[in-house]
């Protein structure tokens, strides 16, 4: 276990190093001049030049890179070009919002997918199964933004049950915060739950045909105990893999949903930082997302080894 942790930490540093190079390069090939963005079209050449000098934009790229990484290593993400707020405090403000959205949509997805997957696998060929399959198919083919707009139209505009958009911090009012975020979480969660239902159904069907399931019945277990005690845990591994990938994607990729529901999360921060060429913010956000992906992968591996004792944590990537 310890050697696994050490190796994993080492690997993580290497990956983050490469990611930092890639992020920095990509950001710097973006067309557009941050100084121009800040000062506007009417700015004089001298003031632009002075600002560039001031922001360090005239240094060679390699120097800029090392300055950035050096600061990063000291926990300093730099300041926003726009208003000099600390990138770290911007991230600290936005991450919880997107995290809340992600966690809520995952909760919804799992709450739907596990019963739906179990029912359609254990009642294969029945109306239950067909309904779950239909749900899974339509859910996967519905784009979240479309579902989002539909939800707003039905539940916010027509029925007036939910606010159409906006966000209340969870620290202010838990109930209000959950309420505001429910529609966007559903918009994101439905698609995910459809995907997870499909995966769970097929992997559960496979497991249910295995010899040890028959052993479970042979020792006198009823179907419920067999499915939840013996089959589910064995069939959940592929579902976890997909979930982990999706979770990481959600943390950075809920841009459109955040836009539609006007949620000031990481997605919006990313979009504005690209639009305004706010390099430090953009770099900081992307680095965070890379870190999140790595951590989630790590947690997935740990979870795998807990769920399946045949999998040993020996380090490296699996």
């Amino acid at each position: 276990m310890l050697s696994f942790l050490l190796r994993r930490a080492g690997l993580m540093i290497v990956i983050l190093f490469f990611v930092s190079i890639i992020v920095f390069s990509l950001v710097n090939v973006l067309p557009g001049d941050p100084a121009l963005m800040i000062l506007g079209q009417e700015a004089t050449d001298e003031s632009l030049e002075a600002l560039r000098e001031d922001m360090g934009l005239n240094d060679p790229l390699v120097m800029q890179y090392f300055a950035w990484v050096g600061d990063l290593l000291q926990g300093d993400f730099g300041q926003s070009f726009r208003d000099n707020t600390e990138v770290s405090s911007l991230l600290a403000e936005k991450i919880p919002i997107t995290l809340q959205l992600t966690v809520m949509s995952f909760a919804i997805a799992v709450l739907i997918a596990i019963p739906a997957g179990v029912i359609s696998a254990t009642r294969k060929g029945t109306l239950w199964d067909s309904s779950a399959t239909l749900f899974a198919l339509s859910g996967v083919s519905l784009p979240p933004f479309w579902l989002g707009i539909l939800l707003i139209f039905i539940f916010a505009v027509t029925l007036g049950w939910f606010p159409p958009s906006g966000y209340v911090p969870i620290t202010e009012s838990v109930a209000q915060s959950l309420w505001y975020m429910l529609l966007p979480a559903v918009a994101l969660g439905v698609r995910l739950s459809a995907e997870l239902t499909r995966m769970l159904r097929s992997s559960l069907l496979e497991v249910l045909g295995s010899d040890y399931i028959r052993t479970g019945y042979a020792k006198g277990l009823l179907e419920r105990a067999v499915v939840y005690g013996h089959a589910l845990r064995n069939s959940i591994l592929p579902v976890i893999t997909v979930s982990a990938l999706q979770f990481a994607a959600f943390l950075g990729g809920t841009v459109i949903t955040e836009e539609i529901f006007n949620i000031p999360g990481l997605g919006q921060l990313l979009v504005t930082s690209i639009q305004t060429r706010d390099f430090p913010v953009l770099q900081g956000a992307v680095m965070f997302m890379a870190l999140a992906v790595i951590l989630i992968n790590f947690l997935t591996d740990v979870l795998y080894s807990i769920l399946d004792p045949r999998i040993k944590l020996t380090g490296g990537s699996q």
């Binding site: 010899d211 019945y217 277990l221 004792p309």
Partner: peptide
């Protein structure tokens, strides 16, 4: 099903042909 499950493993038990796969690996 319910009555059978009271008999299985209790009054009638079975050993299967495949020892390698008949136990739950987890």
């Amino acid at each position: 099903m319910k009555e059978m499950s009271k008999i299985r493993g209790n009054e009638i038990s079975m050993i299967f042909q495949e020892p390698m796969t008949s136990l739950n690996p987890v």
